[in-house]
């Protein structure tokens, strides 16, 4: 799962640091040429400080989104309705932990430790995708997250496989493969409920879809005309496709999938536009988006508190592991 557009975040100042030496100017020129040529930048390569900062922020927040994202679905592991679904869910949430690991590792190549990144999360300095601040109230939410949230995440993430920063791009290739699998599993679980299940289950599915639809559309970030940082992200090859383009692609795909499921989306303005050959959708309530991003969503406090509690409860474990490692080193040295 992912993440939302980086455009919601503060401007890092773009590409315009005061260059102090001719050598730096030359490095900058070489960097720009490589970006223009579509080359990848490796961790050891020279890069502008703002490029580094922007990437560190985006990758670490993506990593945080993965591990916070373990909570809403993890919530259902003990209650999964069949052993098969329990296994699938365990494997899925485990994958998300794995995505967190690759992404923290990719971000660490930029010179910040995982502990520092986690500290930023725990103290509220770093954000994570606000989709995870919505609650999972029924079992159908697990399927709806797989279908819609992971579906939106894939739309967002596939272009990042071509991100100019190679460690991030490489991590995304694997993550996207797993996300596609998660999306199919989510869709399949809803399909079984609506096609083979009871009326009560069909109602459960529709109710979950009603709740997740609009937050999923918000996952792509603010409209293009309100995304001041997008141009810089595009220039750097970090962002490849605009928020609105991705959102439209998601809506077009989701509408067809909803027909297969026999569910509807809670949008009276959703209709096919013959001229544009796309599905038009109604106005998104951006005040809700900014409220949730700002910390006042339904579960912001619980999610962060759960992460902080796990970290604090585990402190003695991490200390013990370090103490034991030091003892072992001393024994080996003796």
């Amino acid at each position: 799962m992912y993440t939302q557009a980086m455009d919601t975040l503060r401007d890092e100042g773009g590409d315009k640091p005061a260059l102090r030496t001719a050598e730096e100017a030359q490095l900058q020129q070489r960097f720009d040429n490589r970006i223009d040529a579509g080359d990848f930048i490796e961790a050891k390569d020279w890069m502008p400080e703002n490029y580094r900062k922007t990437l560190l922020r985006q990758i670490s927040q993506h990593a945080h989104s993965e591990i916070v994202g373990m909570l809403p679905e993890g919530n259902w592991i003990t209650r999964a309705p069949t052993l098969k679904r329990k296994s699938i869910l365990l494997a899925k949430v485990q994958d998300e932990g794995g995505h967190g690991l690759y992404l923290y590792a990719a971000a660490e190549t930029l010179g910040t430790s995982r502990d520092q990144m986690l500290d930023a999360l725990h103290t509220g300095k770093a954000k994570y995708s606000s989709i995870f601040n919505y609650p999972t109230l029924t079992w159908a939410d697990v399927g709806a997250i797989g279908w819609l949230v992971d579906g939106a995440a894939i739309m967002n993430q596939v272009p990042i496989c071509r991100c100019s920063f190679a460690p991030y791009a490489r991590a995304m290739v694997r993550i996207c493969r797993e996300e596609s699998f998660h999306q199919r599993q989510g869709f399949d679980s809803l399909l079984v409920m609506v096609k083979q299940g009871t009326d009560a289950q069909r109602a459960m599915v529709q109710e979950a879809v009603n709740r997740w639809w609009w937050p999923c559309l918000m996952m792509f970030g603010p409209p293009d005309d309100q995304s001041p940082n997008s141009a810089q992200g595009m220039r750097w090859g970090i962002k490849r496709v605009s928020n609105d383009t991705l959102r439209q692609k998601f809506v077009d795909a989701a509408v067809q999938q909803a027909e297969v499921l026999g569910v509807t989306f809670p949008d009276p303005d959703l209709r096919w536009n013959e001229e544009s050959q796309h599905w038009d959708y109604g106005a998104i309530d951006w005040s809700e988006f900014w409220r949730v991003v700002g910390g006042d969503g339904p579960c912001n406090r619980e999610r962060l508190a759960a992460r902080v509690k796990a970290w604090e409860d585990g402190e003695w474990v991490r200390e013990a592991a370090l103490a034991h490692a030091r003892k072992s080193d001393l024994k080996e040295a003796a």
Partner: peptide, 18 residues
Amino acid sequence: GEWCGHAPILEEDIALSN
């Protein structure tokens, strides 16, 4: 499975879930 998301380090979230 109850540990998933609540372990002392991320590696253990993964190991315990596995």
